[in-house]
């Protein structure tokens, strides 16, 4: 494998890791506050659809992003209502949200666009342009070989849409919020011991709703990036299990932001490798593409089982909080 194809794989790793990273950090806020969220997939899907539909209708990708965030936050509100206010089963609510998104996007998509569930292709201002960073060389098919650093900078780091850079920026921001602000401290506390937070006079309900809203916001960005950045339009079931991979990455990262970045890059790399190579011949054994695709799930099972390290979720996760009277 030559340098250019290696760098191309890294480049697509970053592209494929971006929606995972958004969704993974989204899940981090919710789960750190004690609300399990297996509905990341559904929120991403509905956001991808809303973003593509609004971008197509208005011709502006930013309106699309806002619509995606709005749709995702609406779904997050349903989840919040079910799991915070009505103290329902958070896992079942998540399952319902995934199905709701999967059905609703096809029903509305088919009747609005008459394309069997997909949106018309987005062009021009209706999708994100790739940004060429300062000092980077615009990569074309006949770019002459550059110096190593220049190659890495131009091919891998430069040339992504704005949301990619936003997603990477979200990691330090999340770390800062979580570990350096009052809100973050309370958020972590409410996921471990909501009664203590309540005793301190802080509203458990308010904190959890705030966390769920941030989850909606970030899932909205994840979905919007999928339909307006990664590809040019909405396809039915286009998230294709990425919400679950993000959840897996979250467990893999043990609910910590910097590790989430690493986990998402790893799973993005696996995805990029599976897309590019199909079966990989290592000389002594052929790794089938199906194995590469299943690897994120297998790794998560191994981590969860504590064979390599131990993933301990926030202690109050999944349990509705009942205020003492």
């Amino acid at each position: 494998m030559d340098l250019v194809s290696f760098l191309q794989i890294l480049d697509s790793t970053i592209r494929l890791a971006t929606p995972l990273l958004f969704a993974c950090l989204a899940g981090l806020y919710s789960e750190r506050s004690g609300i399990f969220d297996i509905g990341l997939e559904g929120k991403m899907l509905v956001a991808a659809f809303a973003a593509a539909a609004a971008a197509y209708a208005t011709g502006s990708v930013w309106v699309g992003v806002l619509a995606g965030i709005g749709a995702s936050m609406l779904f997050a509100a349903i989840h919040g209502l079910a799991s915070i206010t009505f103290r329902g089963n958070q896992l079942i609510s998540g399952v319902a949200i995934n199905f709701l998104a999967s059905g609703l996007t096809v029903v509305l998509g088919t009747s609005w666009f008459h394309l069997g569930g997909q949106s018309p292709a987005l062009t021009g201002g209706a999708r994100f342009e790739d940004i060429v960073l300062p000092f980077a060389t615009q990569i074309t098919t006949n770019t002459p070989p550059l110096g190593l650093l220049d190659e890495v900078y131009s091919r891998v780091i430069s040339g992504h849409s704005i949301l990619v850079y936003v997603s990477f920026l979200t990691v330090p921001v999340t770390w800062w919020i979580l570990y350096r602000t009052r809100f973050g401290l309370r958020l972590r506390a409410v996921g471990e011991n909501p009664a203590a937070v309540d005793t301190a006079g802080v509203s458990v309900t308010g904190l959890r709703y705030a966390a769920v809203a941030i989850t909606g916001l970030l899932c909205g960005l994840a979905g919007a990036y999928m339909s307006t950045g990664l590809s040019a339009g909405f396809l039915r079931e286009m998230t294709a299990g990425r919400g679950y991979i993000a959840l897996a990455a979250l467990i893999f990262a043990k609910w910590r932001p910097w590790y989430a970045l690493m986990a998402c890059m790893l799973f993005g790399l696996l995805d990029a490798v599976a897309i590019r190579f199909q079966n990989i011949n290592l000389g002594f054994v052929v790794v089938p593409v199906q194995f590469t695709q299943a690897l994120p799930y297998i790794l998560t099972v191994i981590i969860l089982a504590g064979f390599v390290g131990k993933a301990i979720p926030p202690r109050a996760g999944g349990e509705p909080y009942v205020k003492e009277r």
């Binding site: 209502l81 079910a82 009505f86 089963n89 059905g103 029903v107 088919t110 009747s111 569930g117």
Partner: peptide, 23 residues
């Protein structure tokens, strides 16, 4: 011209109301 996924929506709502929002 109603897509069959209407049923998926119905199924989701049944799960939501009976499973997550019984209260």
């Amino acid at each position: 011209s109603i897509p069959r996924e209407v049923i998926t929506v119905l199924q989701a709502l049944v799960i939501l109301f009976t499973g997550a929002l019984p209260y």
